[in-house]
């Protein structure tokens, strides 16, 4: 078995989307998720010498991140008596609505659905590791961020037919990778 190596300069490009999706479903706050990922990267740098190369770099980073998330909840639990329910009115039109209307519809999405979707999301991101960096970047921009073909072509200085070839290859790889467990 080959020993996994560590290269912090590539962490962000390679793993940030994966780490971010893992975190956001657990803390449900973008800013906090960002902070936890920063802490994870820094903790990773500090303990790099302990990395034995038995796990992959990503698994190792996830294990650090898990600890950071648990620490966060420990800290927020210890602030006893400060728990309160906050209702955030995102815009004026919501103001004055009944509490019930602000509560999520339990029939709409069950906890199991949420869990399955998370698992699915991680599986997709996992499969994306099989794409080249450029394929992954372009595929995400087009499919997840919904950028125009033209905008992506301009950014990467490619023709639309180049773009569609890249998208096609990426989709083939992903479909093949997901086929066994999800199709």
């Amino acid at each position: 078995m080959s020993i996994n190596k560590i290269d912090p300069n590539k962490w962000v490009d390679k793993y940030s989307d994966y780490l971010f999706n893992f975190t956001i479903v657990r803390v449900n706050d973008r800013e906090l998720a960002n902070d936890l990922i920063s802490e994870t990267f820094l903790a990773g740098l500090k303990s790099m010498k302990n990395f034995k190369g038995e796990a992959t770099e990503r698994t190792w980073l996830i294990s650090i991140l898990k600890r950071k998330i648990i620490d966060h909840y420990r800290k927020s639990n210890s602030k006893k008596g400060r728990a309160e329910i906050k209702i955030q009115y995102s815009d004026d039109s919501n103001e004055g609505d009944w509490l019930e209307e602000n509560a999520p519809d339990v029939l709409d999405k069950t906890a199991e659905d949420v869990m399955e979707n998370e698992e699915l999301g991680m599986a997709i991101l996992d499969c994306m590791q099989q794409l080249t960096d450029k394929q992954a970047k372009i595929f995400k921009m087009k499919t997840i961020d919904g950028f125009d073909t033209e905008a992506i072509c301009n950014e990467f200085n490619i023709t639309p037919s180049n773009l569609w070839v890249i998208i096609h290859r990426a989709r083939m790889t992903l479909a093949q990778c997901l086929e066994k467990n999800w199709f």
Binding site: V12, S16, N21, S38, G121, I124, R171, L174
Partner: peptide, 25 residues
């Protein structure tokens, strides 16, 4: 595949977020 990606609700990090992490590292 299209349906699964929609269902999974994957999010991506913005370029600014990535830049900030890179600088910290």
């Amino acid at each position: 595949l299209t349906k699964l990606i929609e269902q999974s609700d994957i999010k991506t990090c913005t370029e600014e977020e990535k830049k900030a992490w890179k600088e910290k590292i």
